[in-house]
Design a protein around this nucleic acid. Structure first.
Lengths: 334, 334
DNA sequence: CGCCCGTGGGTAAACGTTTACCCCTTACCG
DNA sequence: CGGTAAGGGGTAAACGTTTACCCACGGGCG
């Protein structure tokens, strides 16, 4: 078996209590004994058993995070930001991928909760089907939702004001003279898809733009953007602008337009959402609604810590205003 | 406190042993008692405490994975594939991001090992500086390296034959008439950067191509590709082809070339490596060396399981032959 | 009828830490 | 000099499961 704290104590000629106190720094120990313990630990190659520690203390110094699909580059960006935020407090982040499947999501959430993570950060797959998982896990551990949320908010949320974000995009293309504006986004499964769609419809309504432009709802993936572009081209007249639900979709749309020799921005304007790294590398570089990842992460950790400090704090929602990043896909910076 | 198996047993009127046996299915229990236990568990809202279980059993049904940086889309793709492979055996995957920092990598590796993961899959940050971490963690838990490896192989490895991959790219551009071939890749920190560089030099040598073409080594990121392209343009003559160390770099190169009105493939050929999702969405779509993610993942899990079954199995290295995917950045499919 | 074996149940001892509680020594103060 | 407090050390009881070991019972077989 591996070397335990008991072996260390024995080797150092002290009690396990003293060894533990030295190793965790939980109480003052005379320097001479401390030295002996540390030497013994090093000599024996002692490794802290986090499982035993977690069982006894009920805490793990670990935060869990679940994202709907790790292949969507927006999520790694958030993960990165969260990770950096967590760095300071010495906690580890364990990440799980739900693969767009609420059953897997539930499984992962339980796995993390069963491991006694001190907190859980989750981007729920579905605004409805993920709810049960959220409710279940919320009664066991502090939870913060990021980006997406679940109906009726069983837990804190931090994200961007999606409706406002989309309205920035629509206003922008309107200002450039577009009146026929199409919308390509994901099916109304997640809260962000819903909010972005609602924001779009509200802008169309409020500004008296024509209603008969296409609304194509699929997934948040480039493949769908490509398919949607084919659809748009198949049913003239072409819109003046295509507002996309995220950057991946927009990149797919751009790719298909390029292939079909539809010129962007001359023939049609295209906008995205998120401002992923590839947005500026797209051809043409993509005008998009930027999500401030660092702020989201900071807010997220703040909420998590607050809830860890007091489980009964009222549920909070933090919506951060996104900003528009203008690039060539709508004609470039003015 | 939370409800324990003791509460369940009491409520069902059986011993904890029986309750445990029902809940884990470790031994036959008469149907009537089993029913009572299950009912009690449901009624009380019993949740398995994985920490206690792990402490007692020494296993966790969990696999840990560490990638150098989650923002490089190649890694999420591998993670996805591994995750799908793991699905079948009911194990959970906990992912960690090393943020390109061997200190963080070591911290994460220890965190996972301390949590008693049953195995660890790692893409080491550095071929030299990650070695100590690998050695340390290898004596505690089965480890498989993917994609990159560490000097002298303290653990199994599965990856692609990088040298061969690069030679496919070089041969391809040579076949298209290129003689002056430049190489843009990452600093020789990781094994993949080293192998790809070595493969490139070997091809130049073997085919008697001019030696005075640029070798620009930076990072595996698009920003670097962009910077390298600027460098290439600043020092004529332009090469006939630019072979890149990965797709991200290539996308950056393409972006900068487009901005400077350098035509690809007419003026210069460009190739990548990995075949990430965006490779085909780039402008022009990118000719690249494809890494077969599913095969890598399958092989990886196979190696891990083999090592879990027998810790003393000799160390294995599995190199899979990559294939060339020809797209417009070198003139398109012939 | 006696023995053996298989089945299903319980008791209690682990797993490795942390920490409540207790004790002893020493120093300080009135 | 007695009393008290503080500091540093040890003992042992948790934390919640799993499982080795034991026991009782019943059926089959010689």
């Amino acid at each position: 078996m591996a070397v335990t704290i008991r072996d260390v104590a024995e080797h150092a000629g002290v009690s396990v209590a003293t060894a533990s106190r030295v190793l965790t720094g939980s109480r003052n120990v005379s320097p001479v004994l401390a030295q002996r313990v540390n030497d013994a630990a090093r000599a024996l190659g002692y490794r802290h058993n986090a499982v035993a520690s977690a069982l006894r203390r009920g805490r793990t110094n670990t935060v869990g995070m679940i994202v709907p699909e790790i292949e969507n580059p927006f999520f790694p960006a958030i993960v990165e930001a969260v990770e950096r935020r967590l760095q300071g407090s010495g906690r580890d982040l364990f990440l799980c991928d739900a693969q767009q499947d609420v059953a897997i999501e539930r499984h992962r959430a339980r796995a993390l909760a069963n491991r006694q993570v001190d907190g859980l950060i989750i981007v729920p797959v579905s605004s409805t089907a993920s709810r049960a998982t959220l409710v279940e896990v919320t009664e066991r551990t502090p939870v913060v939702q990021v980006d997406r949320y679940v109906q009726e908010y069983p837990a804190d949320w931090v994200g961007v004001d999606d409706q406002h974000g989309i309205s920035l995009a629509v206003e922008h293309v309107m200002a450039l003279g577009a009146t026929r504006v199409a919308f390509v986004s994901a099916a109304l499964e997640s809260s962000s898809a819903q909010a972005r769609h609602a924001g779009f419809e509200r802008m169309i309504e409020r500004n008296g733009l024509p209603h008969d432009t296409p609304r194509l709802l699929g997934t948040f993936r480039a493949e769908w953007g490509r398919a949607a572009a084919i659809e748009l081209l198949a049913h003239p007249p072409m819109p003046d602008a295509v507002v996309c639900g995220n950057d991946e979709i927009a990149v797919g749309v751009l790719g298909e337009f390029r292939r079909k020799r539809v010129r962007v921005p001359e023939d049609v304007l295209v906008t995205g959402f998120d401002d992923i790294r590839f947005a500026q590398l797209a051809d043409p570089p993509l005008t998009t609604v930027r999500q401030p990842g660092d702020q989201l992460a900071a807010e997220c950790i703040r909420l998590l810590d607050a809830r860890m400090a007091d489980r009964d704090t009222p549920i909070q929602r933090v919506a951060i205003a996104p900003s528009l990043v203008i690039r060539e896909s709508t004609g470039g910076s003015s």
